[in-house]
Design a protein around this nucleic acid. Structure first.
Length: 787
DNA sequence: GTTAGCAGCGTTTTT
DNA sequence: CGCTGCTAAC
């Protein structure tokens, strides 16, 4: 049954009257679970509501309980509630929790999802109003850039000086502001060498021809349809009795307009957010949306959730102290009942390597339980960095000491080359007219169909006004192409036809078909024959892709799903420390959090300050706030005086955010090996330092001096005599010098030396690394991962 | 058509 | 320093 069936019946006048108001609300035991503010947020159902929910104040609980309350009081039926999130993860969590509260799966809530997934649903229904067919394809960033590149080249613009990536950024920015090509203000006319708007229009034309949309279009088309067709808008305004929005501080202008238009009907819109956690301004998010809420929605009630259930008072106060330096906040005062706990710990290091070393040891100490603290599992610890390149130092160190870790947020599954290639094959099998998919795979694997051959196909297609596949068919029958390429092309066309025929059969085995496609096309073989370190992993990923198909009825359903779901959740069981960016950490919490790299220029990032001035600095400060408030019990901030940046040593001052930490909530730790003499003291003069950083005048900065004044005498985590290193004799003895080995991250290499449980490996691509033996396998084992 | 070698560059990234 | 992406030579 379509999600629109009931909606259509409603539009036809067959809606049953909601007996809600006549009916007494059923008992609501779920309300007893809430604090007064949460309860107000749940029970204030009518009219606009802004729920200002600080970090760790039970916002999701309030939001989900509110939905349950709406249902329980019969204010709305499940399909009349529009509940919008940003991420699929958040949508999933909301569904789960509503289901749990209801005691049954929240299946009947078709309008609970991300901005994008809901927009797709709306746009498929009204595609013709945007000049599209309802089976349009959704391009990801990669396709988008390839398309723009084609346009730029076609316009004879020097792609070097004016890269497609940049144009994509400009166009995205415009779409985020809900500007169609004709609506781009004159002030933007100089964009992209004065040709921005013109190329934007060309790009939109091309998308329409391809029956495709990019991510920005999903929102933009819906907004423009609503604006141009009040009758359509009105239906939805009437249908959605209650609207809920999560992470409102992250909405951009287009999303804001989308919401405003829909909310004009019943005016029951509840936005949840925290202006202090707005960290996506650079991506088009407008903090202004949340700051302006009361003006935008007159009569709005603002409910503050301020009781924090996550962190200790010291951590909370430290975070509040930092964020207090921002101007123009709506303002909240977080408080907690929790026990005092540890102060926020602050430590300076000589360089980035030492910082990584110290954190590694500290993690092991926390894991064992030191200084009267209960042991903390590595699963409950996280290292949050400003920029992903900071992760490397930790990975290197942790590999050396054998500390298991996981990196959150790396390249995502569906963005990987091999997955995108495979998907292009599937797309072509489902819709042979998908020219972008055809282009992608026509010479992958190599079929001797290079630029020249592809030009011939392009021309044939354009001349006849047909798709590339049809163009290719003509080229084959005319034999307007030479030798090997022609034979290969003939084969490819025949194969696509065959796949398509099979894909059309209702109830066909799509998993078998997918495997067949990858095998017939030679794609699997391509990676099997590839001897680069990545190849085994790629085959593994392809296997996973096929496995993912099991959850769908056919390829089409799968492709539809994947276009919007780009997440990569691999649940692994081992206890591991998490390493991720501060951005990726939003919404998460950990008993122990490490915040390294608090140096001016790195954090706050120089670039953010240069490009966005005070606005940029304030966003960085919010990022600091997000970081600190991730911690439940232990929060450790650190910085390094020296760091290698792009191969050059650079020294920096402690972050200005460190100065903003209220002293009474901070304990300054002394790094091992430095206590006694202290920082700046005689033993650390330039003469004994690395000459490369001798000119740095770190030790006279106000921040450094203040740091010293605060320095407590208690040193922590001194190098320990007995480290609980378990030497895995099997692992040690299973390798000898000269062995070929394989490592998940570094690929293939040769064992060069063995010291205890550590191997010295010269990797083919990644260089020399010292790492614990159990992180590598014999190369022969990695060679034949079957597909 | 493929590949080696070099110039250029270098936050954050929910969909 | 190390990666990406293009040009120039096989």
């Amino acid at each position: 049954m379509s999600d629109f069936d009931e909606f259509d019946a409603f539009e036809a006048g067959a809606r049953q009257s909601l007996s809600a108001r006549a009916m007494a609300a059923r008992p609501a035991p779920y309300l007893d679970d809430l604090n007064p503010a949460q309860r107000a947020a749940v029970e204030t159902l009518d009219g606009p509501v802004l729920m200002l929910a600080g970090a760790g104040t039970g916002k999701t609980k309030a939001l989900t309980t509110r939905i349950v309350h709406l249902l329980n009081t019969h204010r709305a039926r499940p399909n009349e509630i529009l509940a919008v999130t940003f991420t699929n993860k958040a949508a999933r969590e909301m569904k789960d929790r509503v289901g749990r509260l209801l005691g049954q799966p929240a299946e009947g809530m078709p309008w609970m999802g991300t901005f994008h997934s809901i927009s797709v649903k709306l746009l498929r229904r009204h595609a013709e109003l945007a000049g599209l067919k309802s089976n349009f394809t959704i391009l990801d960033t990669d396709d988008q850039i390839r398309l723009l590149k084609q346009i730029i080249v076609a316009e004879n613009i020097d792609e070097k000086r004016w890269p497609a990536r940049q144009l994509a950024g400009i166009i995205d920015g415009w779409k985020n502001r809900a500007w169609t090509p004709t609506k781009v203000p004159a002030a933007e006319a100089s964009a992209f060498n004065n040709r921005g708007t013109e190329l934007y229009a060309a790009y939109q034309d091309r998308l329409r021809t391809l029956n495709a949309v990019d991510f920005g279009d999903l929102l933009l088309h819906v907004v423009t349809i609503f604006q141009a067709h009040p009758d359509v808008l009105e239906q939805y305004q009437r249908w959605f009795r209650y609207i809920l929005v999560d992470e409102y501080q992250d909405t951009n202008i287009a999303q804001y307009m989308w919401l405003r238009l829909l909310a004009q009907g019943h005016r029951n819109i509840c936005c949840v957010g925290d202006d202090d956690q707005s960290i996506y301004g650079w991506r088009g998010a407008e903090v202004g949306n949340i700051l302006r809420f009361e003006k935008d929605f007159p009569g709005a009630q603002v409910i503050r959730l301020e009781q924090n259930y996550r962190s200790t008072p010291h951590i909370l106060s430290a975070a509040s102290g930092v964020i207090a330096a921002n101007k123009g906040r709506l303002g909240k005062t977080l408080w907690t009942d929790a026990q005092e706990g540890e102060k926020v710990r602050l430590i300076g290091h000589w360089d980035g390597e030492e910082e990584a070393r110290w954190i590694g040891e500290e993690i092991e100490a926390l894991q064992r339980g030191t200084r009267g603290l209960d042991p903390i599992s590595p699963d409950d610890m996280a290292i949050l960095v400003r920029a992903s390149h900071q992760m490397r130092a930790f990975e290197d160190r942790f590999l050396t000491i054998g500390l298991p870790y996981r990196v959150i947020g790396g390249p995502r599954f569906y963005e990987r080359l091999e997955i995108r290639d495979a998907m292009a094959y599937f797309r072509l099998a489902v819709s042979p007219e998908d020219d972008l998919a055809f282009e992608r795979i026509v010479n992958t694997p190599k079929r001797g169909l290079g630029d020249k051959a592809q030009q011939v196909i392009q021309r044939a297609a354009r001349d006849a006004g047909v798709t590339l596949l049809e163009g290719a068919r003509r080229v084959v029958s005319d034999a307007s192409l030479g030798g090997k390429g022609l034979a290969e092309l003939r084969r490819l066309v025949a194969e696509v036809d065959r796949w398509h025929q099979r894909a059309l059969v209702p109830g066909h085995n799509h998993i078998e078909l997918a495997e067949q496609i990858l095998d017939d096309s030679g794609y699997t073989a391509m990676w099997q024959n590839d001897k680069t370190p990545e190849a085994p992993g790629r085959l593994e990923n392809l296997k996973e892709l096929v496995k993912a198909l099991e959850q769908f009825e056919n390829l089409q359903g799968f492709l539809e799903h994947v276009a919007l779901i780009m997440d990569n959740e691999t649940e692994d069981v081992a206890e591991k420390v998490s390493i991720m960016t501060l951005h990726a950490a939003k919404g998460l919490e950990f008993p122990a959090v490490f915040l390294p790299g608090w140096e001016d220029g790195l954090f706050p990032s120089q670039r953010a300050m240069d490009e966005s001035g005070l606005k940029g600095l304030e966003e960085e400060r919010r990022l600091a706030y997000v970081g600190i408030t991730r911690a439940e019990r232990i929060c450790t901030i650190s910085f390094a005086a020296n760091r290698r940046v792009y191969g050059q040593w650079q020294s920096s001052l402690p972050s200005r955010f460190i100065d903003e930490l209220p002293e009474e909530h901070v304990e300054v730790l002394t790094p091992p090996g430095l206590y006694g003499g202290g920082y700046g003291a005689a033993g650390m003069t330039a003469s004994t330092m690395d000459q490369r950083v001798a000119s740095a005048n770190v030790y006279n900065s106000p921040g450094w001096k203040r740091l010293q004044e605060r320095t407590a005498t208690r040193p922590v985590s001194q190098p320990r005599e007995s480290r609980n290193v378990v030497i895995d004799l099997d692992a040690v003895s299973s390798f000898t010098i000269g062995d070929r080995v394989f490592h998940q991250k570094f690929g293939y290499g040769t064992v060069d030396g063995i010291e205890g449980d550590k191997l010295d490996v010269a990797f083919d691509k990644a260089g020399r690394k010292k790492l614990v033996a159990r992180f590598v396998v014999a190369a022969a084992q990695a060679d034949d991962i079957p597909f």
